[in-house]
Simulated assay, not measured.
Amino acid sequence: MTSETWNPLSTAPPFPAVRYASIADRIAKVLGTRNDVLLIQAEAVVALEAVATSLARPGLKVLNIVTSPYGLWFGNWLRRGGADVIELAAEPARPIDVEAVERALNAHPDMKVLALCHAESASCILNPMEDILALARARGIVTIVDAVASVGGHDLNVDELGVDIAIIGPQKSLAGPAGLSALSVSSAAWQLISREGGPTGSILSLLDQKIWLDAGRGTLPGTTAPLEFFALEAALDRLEAEGLASVIARHGRAARATHAGLIALGAEPWVKPEKGSHLVTAVELSEAADPKALLAAAAPLGMEFSIGVGPGANRLIRLNHTGLRARFDIVLGNVTAYGIGLRRLGFKADIAAAVEAIALHYGD
C-alpha cells in the first residue's frame, strides 16, 4: 500500500483483542467498582435500552424516575418487555425530590428495581442520587443509574453507593468517542437479568454480551470498531494522566465559575449550584427574549450554546463546559458571549462584572 492511498480513518489496524479487558478494568477503576464491566459497541442510548430490555419481564415492578425524555424512553422499553412500571416524574426540567421517591417506595413495598439519571444534560440538573440510592439500598432494591452525563464530572463510586447497574458514555466529561459505551453489572442485577424469559440473539441482550466475560474477556461479540477503541484508550490515557479527582474538580470549578458569572451578568441560572450539572449550566431567558434569536446573536462569537431539551426546558439556554471545555477560557467565552447576545437583543448585561466574577474562581 502506497503512502498516497493509506488513510488512518479507512485503513486503521484492528484493535488488539487482548486490550479489551484492560479497557474494562480501567473503566471499573473510574467507576470505583469490582462489578463486571461490559463494553457496548454503540452510543450509550443503546446500552440504556439493552439494560431495560434485558431486565424487563412480566411481574417485575420498577420505579422509574423521570427527569428528561430519556427517562420516558427507559420506561417505555421496560413496558415493552412486560414490566410493571411505576413512573415518578419531577417538575418539568427540575430535579426529583427525595421525599417523593420515599413516598413512592413506601406505597409500593414490592418494588424490585429503581432507575434514575444522575445528571441531565437536557436541562442541566443534578438529581439527589446518593439519598435516593440509600432509600433503595435499605429496601434491597436493585438500582440502575444513567451516569452518562455525570461520570468524570461528579463523584461516582459505584460500590460505595450500592449501584447495581451504572451506564456510562465516554463522550462527555471523559472527552472520548461517542460510538462506545460501558456498563457495570452487580451479581444482584445478573440474577434478575438471568431469569427465564430474557432476550438472546440480540444486540440488546446483556446475556449475549456476558458471553465475552464467560469466555475470558477475549474477542467481543460482533465486528469491533477499532477507531472507537483507539480513541477510548486515548481518552483514558488522558484521564489517568490528569487524575480522576482533578478532572472532577476541574468540572466543578467550571460550573461554579459559570454560575457566578451569570449572576454577575444579571442573569438567573436555572437551578442552585448544588442542584446543577457540572458539565452544562442552564440559564432561563425572560419571556421577552426569543431563544433562537439569542443563539443567532451570539453565534458569530463561536461559543457553544444550545436550547434545553424536553418539557420545561424550551426557554433554557445551555452553556457547555464539558470535557476539554471545562477550563477558564471557555467559561469566560461562554458567559461573555451570552452577555453580548443579550445586549444585541436590547437587554442589559454587566459583562465587566461577569468577567471579574469568573476570574475570582480562577485566581489561584
Results as ranks from 00 to 15, higher is better:
Met1Ala: 14
Thr2Ser: 15
Ser10Gly: 12
Ala17Ile: 06
Arg19Asp: 15
Asp25Ala: 14
Leu39Pro: 02
Gln41Lys: 07
Ser54Leu: 07
Leu55Thr: 09
Ala56Tyr: 10
Ile65Asp: 12
Thr67His: 07
Trp73Asp: 15
Phe74Gln: 08
Leu78Met: 15
Ala100Gln: 14
Arg103Asn: 05
His108Asp: 13
Lys112Cys: 05
Ala115Pro: 04
Ala115His: 12
Leu116Cys: 07
Leu116Arg: 06
Ala122Gly: 12
Cys124Trp: 00
Ile125Ser: 12
Ile125Asn: 02
Leu126Phe: 03
Ile132Ala: 02
Ala138Thr: 08
Val142Arg: 04
Thr143Leu: 09
Val158Leu: 10
Asp159Pro: 05
Ser173Arg: 07
Leu174Lys: 01
Gly176Tyr: 02
Gly179Val: 06
Leu180Phe: 09
Trp190Gly: 10
Trp190Pro: 04
Gln191His: 13
Gln191Pro: 00
Leu192Tyr: 03
Arg195Phe: 00
Gln209Tyr: 14
Lys210Asp: 15
Leu213Pro: 06
Asp214Leu: 15
Ala215Asp: 15
Gly218Ser: 11
Thr223Ile: 11
Ala225Asp: 15
Pro226Asn: 07
Phe230Ile: 09
Asp237Met: 12
Gly243Cys: 10
Ala245Asp: 15
Ala249Met: 01
Thr258Val: 03
Trp270Cys: 03
Pro273Cys: 10
Pro273Arg: 01
Thr281Phe: 01
Ala288Arg: 14
Lys292Phe: 04
Ala293Val: 04
Leu295Ile: 14
Leu295Gly: 07
Ala297Trp: 08
Ala298Lys: 04
Phe305Gly: 08
Pro311Thr: 03
Gly312Ala: 08
Arg318Pro: 08
Gly323Asp: 10
Leu324Trp: 08
Thr336Trp: 01
Tyr338Cys: 06
Ala352His: 06
Ile358Cys: 11
Ala359Arg: 12
Tyr362Trp: 13
Gly363Phe: 13
